[in-house]
Design a protein around this nucleic acid. Structure first.
Lengths: 182, 182
DNA sequence: AGTTGCACTGCAACTCGTTGCATAGTACGG
DNA sequence: CCGTACTATGCAACGAGTTGCAGTGCAACT
């Protein structure tokens, strides 16, 4: 499991409540790891028992109190230990690829319109990444040590979206060509 | 869940036993969907209860008997129904991305050597896909309707590996540059 | 005054998939 | 003859993640 470790990385950068983490995951870690708030609260509880993080209650005015979690020395040690382990290559899971593979047994038009929807989603995400890159890393040749990891991951996101768009285009183009043949 | 549907696609192309399916998944569907034999047997059992597939026993000489599954009309209908549904965009899960993101809290050398291992794996997989493309689809402009889906999915695999290699190179290059700065 | 929406935390039940194990016949090399 | 490897099927226990539900408190809109 790596959700624990994704949370550790996030907390190593900055302490946060479960709610904060859920939103931070949405905003910046979601490109390579998603988690619902339920999952995050559950894992945080376990991590607290394991002493990887410690919580203290912060009273707030105008909104509910929250529990802010901070990484402990044990947590940092765990992060170091985990990072030195070989990373298993994860099995890809692409439902749309299954549909494309089985196109001739399925509803062609529905799948193609699905591909168009995806293409749009990839475009939107790419635009978001590009804006983020322009804003935070205008000069990639002068990155600080603390920024390099986040920058490289953003690059992965960018490349992923570009590839997604290119693949959608190939699919759609293949069908345009076939129509033209008739 | 789409394992059911991945199996349906596979059985729609050709009837097979659980064992066959497991190997077929390894060889050709694994790029976008992996499944262990245990999982496949379990799901096949459920699919048989649902009448999506039917099994008949084939006695063999020189090896154990096997149960060959064939897709039913109900199974084909299900495949059609499923293909017309919008496909949820799956959440990416990349442990290596988490490690890269948290590079400054982890074991730099270990992560980088991990990246090198991945690069090699991507290279090997790319070579495999390219060989497969050259063998099965020497002329992509003249694809039959029955081949198009498999071809497009192979293209996705190719692009995926190329992107993986490019990303690994960026990471490694970033560290070469940093070393040079010292 | 009532509704909607956001900040905030959490439990329970379920599904999907993984890991480990069990079983059994055949083939082949040492 | 023994060990290993391949074909072939399956169960049990566990782990990770999803879905659905539940509750509090405050702010802003109607």
């Amino acid at each position: 499991m790596a959700l624990e470790h994704a949370i550790l990385v996030s907390l190593a950068e900055k302490s946060a409540s479960g709610y904060d983490l859920a939103r931070r995951f949405d905003a910046s870690i979601a490109h390579f790891w998603k988690a619902s708030h339920q999952q995050i609260y559950k894992v945080l509880g376990r991590m607290e028992s394991d002493k990887w993080v410690e919580a203290h209650l912060v009273e707030q005015t105008g909104r509910p109190d929250k529990k802010v979690y901070a990484i402990t020395d044990e947590g940092r040690a765990e992060l170091l230990r985990w990072s030195s382990l070989p990373t298993p290559i994860e099995s890809p899971r692409s439902e749309i690829a299954v549909k494309v593979r089985g196109l001739r047994f399925g509803d062609r038009d529905a799948v193609l319109s699905d591909v168009r929807v995806r293409r749009q989603a990839h475009l939107a995400q790419l635009a978001y990444y590009e804006a983020s890159a322009a804003k935070h890393y205008p000069d990639p040749s002068a990155l600080g040590d603390d920024e390099l990891g986040a920058y490289l991951v953003l690059r992965a996101g960018l490349m992923q979206e570009q590839m997604g768009i290119a693949w959608c285009d190939e699919i759609l183009q293949a069908f345009v060509d076939r129509e033209a043949d008739r």
